[in-house]
Amino acid sequence: MARRRRPLIIAGGISALVLALVLLLPLALVVAAAFAPSESLGISSEQWIAGAGAGRAFRYVLQTYGTHLITSAQVALAAGAIALLLGAPAGTALAMAERRRGARALETLLTLPLGVPGIAAAIALLSAFPGRGGALGLLVVGHVLYTLPYATRTVGETARASRLGPLLDAARTLGAGRVQRVRFVLWPALRRALGSAALVALAVSWGEFNVTFLLATPSRGTFPTALYLSYTTNSFPVAAAATTIMLAGLVPLVLLALALGHRPEQGA
């Protein structure tokens, strides 16, 4: 039985395509600007570095903001690991204990940061805990506040959807002990969600700006803060190069997470 292609869907499809192109265009331009002389793209820069080629822009970025990159990597790995190690068990446990009172409330509590706009949350945190500016631990804590809810929710939703609780009961009746249940039921059921959650956590941390910006000092910050500095002080090609590096980190993470089943409606 063939469905008639409604004109609305065709129009919608075209508009989706157009929108997608609109979204991609600036990105493509910026990345191109990092590699090619930007005059050819119609962009002229007031602070044009004469004779700058792609290599110089990237090298400049790495030189100037190399420490930011490293800090970003450190924070991302730490925040991601914590998010996964705490969030995955929490999400799973909450999904399985669904009928007990308080499980729902606890889950809402754990995912609360996702509902509060970043800047408000950042201000709240920093008023309450005046930071020793730039301390790595504090940065990690700030990031964890956002990575943890994502991990909890991603893993929790998968656990709920695959009805992990009843499945584990079935495994018990089939003779599986605790370790075996984890190995033969829990792990296969949650594998993809764990991978996706890890990637999303990394991506969130990699791009986090609100809390980081308020915590950072000129010497110690993450790469997004470096981007801010670059946008406000550097020439266009350099800023473009820095952005390209940001994208180079972000795009693979997001695409991989999508491939593992991540659904991006709520950001990141």
């Binding site: 997608a20 700006f209 981007l227 940001m246 695409l255 950001g267």
Partner: peptide, 22 residues
């Protein structure tokens, strides 16, 4: 297409601002 839409969602505000300026 969905992937293309997902990408800008993960960009932080500063980058989007930069794109606007660019």
């Amino acid at each position: 297409l969905r992937g293309v839409f997902a990408l800008p969602l993960s960009l932080s505000g500063v980058v989007v601002g930069f794109l606007a300026v660019a």
